[in-house]
Design a protein around this nucleic acid. Structure first.
Lengths: 125, 125
DNA sequence: ATATTGTATATATACTTTATATACAATATA
DNA sequence: TATATTGTATATAAAGTATATATACAATAT
């Protein structure tokens, strides 16, 4: 698995690692059940501290992409897309919710809001 | 105009000032055209640096609540609620926009999105 | 001319984020 | 069981950001 980090990037190292592994998983380049490089090995390869790779792996675990077992290693989770979908669904709901709150504050009706939504949905092809 | 700041609040001083003046304006306690205390005077009253009051006034100006003129002072802007509404409208559009993008990523149709919106709108009485 | 107003620059301080070293705990395996 | 490998926890350093300041400058009023 190819992971490249750039030191002069503004993006923190742990996020670069996170993003690249996430991408590999989502594009099925690494499949469910397969093992990731150990935190230590990856840290050595990237010439970076274990804590940094751990941080990346932690985020990946928090978001359901991988799981880690002491002594064994870290593995790609079953990527039931349902879970990913649900997670994103929650985010969408929250976004809509705040938009709704703001709308109510300035007296935008549900009908108006729907119209706006339709417009934006079609606009953003 | 009554402004009180708390030093043991987590909220930065400039934000406390900002919020209170904004409230005074929105509730019409100070009316359009009327002058605010000078940055220096307010700074003295609150026992705070001019830079801090300036920062608060800057934010207020950026958001269209007041305007400042060198040598004259700072004044409450015409509060055409239209402007405030427009400003909020833009925010709402942006919120909807990102929600739409996320929706498309996981294949939520416009119809489904509208249903969700309706549900949330009514739920949040 | 002088005082009052807002503004710009350079700086100090506290807080948060990012990254680290090192010691610990659990599992695999020879 | 001994040893190596894996992930984890704690304490800490370094860099970056946010907050607040002093002081000097510029425009306006009187």
């Amino acid at each position: 698995m190819q992971i490249l980090i750039s030191n002069n990037s503004k993006e923190p190292i742990y996020e670069q690692i996170y993003a690249q592994i996430k991408k590999h998983i989502l594009t099925n380049e690494i499949q469910a059940g397969h093992s990731l490089p150990s935190m230590r090995q990856l840290a050595k390869d990237l010439d970076v501290s274990v804590i940094t790779t751990k941080r990346a792996y932690e985020e990946l675990e928090k978001n359901g992409f991988i799981y880690s077992v002491v002594g064994k290693g870290s593995f790609v989770s079953e990527q039931n897309n349902e879970m990913i979908k649900e997670r994103k669904m929650k985010v969408i709901e929250e976004q809509l919710f705040t938009a709704i709150q703001n709308s109510k504050e300035i007296g935008i009706s549900l009908t108006e809001l729907k119209e706006l939504l339709t417009l934006l949905y079609r606009e953003e092809a």
